[in-house]
Simulated assay, not measured.
Amino acid sequence: MRLTASFGLMTLLATAPALGADAWSIDHDQSDLTFEATQQGGSFEGYFGSFSADMRFAADDLDNSAFDVTVDVTSIDTGSRQRDRELPKSDWFAFDAFPKATFKTSEIRETAEGYEAVGELRIRESAHEITLPFTWDTEGDTAEMVGAVTIDRTRYGVGQGDWTDPDAVGHGVTVQVDLTLSRVAD
């Protein structure tokens, strides 16, 4: 009898759908990856026009939730032609050598305000762990993720030489994520 019950339970578990984090795709027409920084004491905003991500998220399965994001830094736009002419150069992003930045999570955890994505942010040849606080709201097969994190650009070699002076360009850059996502059907 026990053998039959054990076999029946194993069969039930084997045929049950596997629980796991849902895959999500970004609706780029309704999503933004922006930043805010300062130059000579005044703030300015910019955005990245091209980015992609492999996103898996389920509030009830954070162990299997993960984000793997790639940003085309050559798609940066700060609203200033003069500033945008400098950014491809070696003192800044060095587009020729480092056209992409990446963020890959190692952990996603729940907080009182929402969630935190802990992972490695790589810009140029520098990689450091950051924690991105975010909210995730799901309605049916649509979700919205909103978050922000402030990084020190100099840790990543962005703004070298004379540009390391925080009076010229502030060290802190706040990256803002506002994504609309659709659940990917299995």
Rank of each mutant, 00 (worst) to 15 (best):
G46E: 05
D152I: 08
A53E: 04
V173N: 06
M55Y: 03
G170E: 09
A168F: 15
T74W: 10
Q39S: 12
V149L: 03
M55D: 06
D77F: 11
E36A: 06
L19G: 10
R2S: 14
F98N: 10
Y156D: 00
A14K: 11
T180W: 10
V69T: 03
D162S: 13
F35G: 02
E110R: 14
Q176V: 13
E129L: 10
Y47S: 15
R183G: 01
E113A: 15
D27S: 08
H171Q: 01
T78R: 02
V69G: 05
A168H: 15
A94L: 04
A117R: 04
H128L: 11
A58G: 11
S52E: 15
R109S: 07
F103A: 00
E45Y: 11
A97D: 10
A148L: 06
D165R: 06
F98I: 01
D165W: 04
T154R: 03
P99Q: 07
A94G: 04
D27K: 05
S50E: 14
F57K: 00
R109G: 00
L3E: 13
R124F: 01
T38V: 03
F44P: 09
V175L: 13
G41Q: 05
R122S: 14
V71S: 01
E110D: 09
E125R: 09
D68Q: 12
G49E: 13
M145E: 06
S52G: 15
E120T: 13
G41P: 00
A14R: 11
T154C: 03
V146W: 07
